[in-house]
Design a protein around this nucleic acid. Structure first.
Lengths: 234, 234
DNA sequence: TGCATTTTCTGACGTTTAGTCAATAATTGA
DNA sequence: TCAATTATTGACTAAACGTCAGAAAATGCA
């Protein structure tokens, strides 16, 4: 950044400013809240200039997703460093995933918008690849923990089940749950007081179901969680 | 329908035709594929008339979701009638859920579009309530099976866990998984050959994790699946 | 059947907003 | 210093939503 000409630096800084202006628009009013004319006005440059940075509205949204995505990778990496057996490190990942959703709920919004093919197909392959890359990195961090568990003899994977497949299940469970929590009214309607806690209980059940040692009956998940909270992403 | 005047009948029929025309538009090009002018043109009525039926574009989409939603309730009801112990009936539900996604993949598209608040907030409370009602009906069918398991002594729920909370976990797992399967490229990228099978394996793990009898080791899930396939929704 | 009233239908119109591009301004480098 | 390159601008086009005053059709009553 310092080695750039002043002009180049101005351009790079402006890109960040555009995103900073666009972010609250999407957060407050979702897909329809973002408006290229208003972005131009608020940033103080003409629309043409905004379009020099982002070829379309959707590209702005995916750029926002890129910003948050890398944050999640960071969260997962930090969590994976937790000192303990593989299963306990897995809890640390669960904690990081939950923290991420709670700290950056807007990322889920971006992701939801980008799941619509009609939106996604307008975005550049390049940024799509970056987002997917982050996803894969998270996946492999977690798969690494599964591999460690297998090496340590804590977990025996059934025939034909890969570590990635195990991770896929946990990923489905958490992302599905978070999505329901953030967007469905049915839960409160049914008197579910702490769905976040329910998700954690289900993760325990999955791990127990695969007979991943030590089983949940052999340690205090609440106590472990407090320890993780103190040591990870504090 | 037969007791209506010819005019009233024409109007009712037209509503179905509008949806029939709109459906493939959404299926093929998602949210941006639906276009009120084109609907009017293809149905052969003016735009104003279309707006007499649906107050906005989003209302058309939620009407499509209503059509499929009730189909899902039907699937779940049928599945719950499967003869067998509670856990086996739960498998029948899993089968129905999977069948529904595969038979009506467009419903997932509609649901995704409607998850965006910017879209949802334009739809009528009335149709929202219908969709949510279907969701609740599915939920309670499944919760009923959990209750049967508890009564039969096959399952002991941990302190403070309600049948609905157990269902919430399975619902998260399946809907999260289906969503990832239908919209992410990462899976094939990672050499996951049959994610549907992986989901089934995870459901087994959850049920085993809660110690729901009989455990998966005590019966042949593949054989059971074949039986269900023959008897349910054949 | 004829006529008044209500309901339905129409499509031109107003509005918003995405995205383009020719003209203009600024920057760079020789 | 000035030609060549690069960046900026904002008026313009086009697409699409949603409206509404007036035309047409349906209804119901004498």
């Amino acid at each position: 950044m310092e080695t750039m000409t002043p002009k180049k630096r101005e351009i790079a800084e402006r890109e960040a400013r555009i995103l900073a202006v666009a972010r609250p628009m999407v957060v407050q009013n979702g897909y329809h809240g973002i408006n290229m004319d208003r972005i131009a006005e608020e940033v103080g440059y003409s629309k043409g200039t905004i379009y020099n940075h982002f070829s379309c509205k959707e590209e702005v949204i995916i750029a926002l997703a890129v910003e948050s995505s890398s944050k999640r990778v960071e969260f997962f990496r930090k969590a994976a460093e937790f000192k303990g057996c593989a299963r306990h490190r897995m809890h640390a990942i669960g904690y990081a995933a939950e923290r991420f959703v709670r700290d950056y709920p807007e990322f889920f919004q971006f992701e939801k918008i980008l799941e619509l093919q009609s939106v996604r197909e307008k975005t550049s392959e390049k940024r799509q690849a970056v987002v997917q890359g982050c996803e894969m990195q998270c996946m492999s961090v977690v798969a690494g923990i599964v591999r460690d568990a297998v090496s340590a003899g804590d977990l025996k994977l059934q025939k034909a089940m890969s570590p990635e497949e195990l991770v896929f299940g946990l990923w489905s469970l958490t992302s599905g749950a978070f999505s329901i929590i953030l967007s469905s009214d049915s839960l409160t309607q049914m008197g579910m007081k702490d769905p976040w806690q329910t998700v954690r209980t289900h993760i325990l059940a999955v791990l127990d179901g695969f007979n991943w040692q030590p089983l949940s009956s052999e340690y205090d998940a609440e106590k472990l969680r407090s320890k993780i909270r103190r040591e990870v992403l504090a």
